[in-house]
């Protein structure tokens, strides 16, 4: 994935959560879907909204806004699911992320991107890879792997399923 990122010439997919602009490295984005019915999986953290059927695969959908503490995503005509490929424990996993709207694919040179500020960001600084800018608008570039790794850990802690690790190694 790292290799793809360098060859993709610093292209980012920008989207909005509430009024904030966010961006994801285009290399980690697979596709963007219109909002479809999400099947809730009971007894899981609220920000994991459930699963959708992506061409026969069950893909979990995460409400980024809820994850970042910005409130639940409402269903509007602009609401989208961004399908991303993230690395969980060294394994590629496909996930969906809810966005209020998807904007554009935006090109930013490395020089245009500043390191994340220590404070004053709407979300935790560790999720941010850098800050870009379009006009007067700041764009928060997410480190998608960090977002989902921490989410997974949180998810594990909250899940009320059977105790102990799964029997996969048996």
């Amino acid at each position: 994935m790292a290799e793809a990122a360098t060859t993709n010439d610093n292209q980012y997919l920008t989207f909005t959560l509430e009024r904030e602009f966010f961006a994801l490295d285009i290399a980690s984005v697979r596709e963007v879907l219109e909002l479809v019915n999400i099947t809730r999986v009971p007894r899981t953290p609220d920000y994991i909204r459930g699963v959708i059927n992506l061409r026969g695969r069950a893909v979990p959908v995460v409400d980024l806004k809820m994850k970042f503490g910005l409130g639940a995503t409402e269903r509007t005509v602009n609401t989208c699911i961004i399908i991303v490929e993230v690395c969980l424990d060294g394994e590629g996993t496909v996930l969906g992320a809810l966005a209020d709207s998807v904007q554009e694919v935006y090109e930013m040179e490395t020089g245009q991107i500043e390191p994340p500020p220590r404070m004053g960001t709407p979300i935790r600084a560790e999720f941010i890879r850098g800050m870009g800018k379009t006009g007067d608008q700041f764009i928060i570039i997410l480190d998608i792997n960090k977002v989902f790794t921490s989410m997974e850990l949180a998810g594990l802690a909250q899940t009320l399923g059977d105790a102990g690790p799964d029997a996969g190694e048996a």
């Binding site: 899981t44 994991i48 009320l160």
Partner: peptide, 24 residues
């Protein structure tokens, strides 16, 4: 269909399936 890694520790479900209307 496997629910994937994210849901691997959920005890109540062994997987998911796709209904006639395409939802899960």
């Amino acid at each position: 269909k496997s629910l994937g890694r994210l849901y691997r520790d959920i005890g109540e479900f062994s997987g998911a399936t796709i209904r006639g209307d395409g939802s899960m």
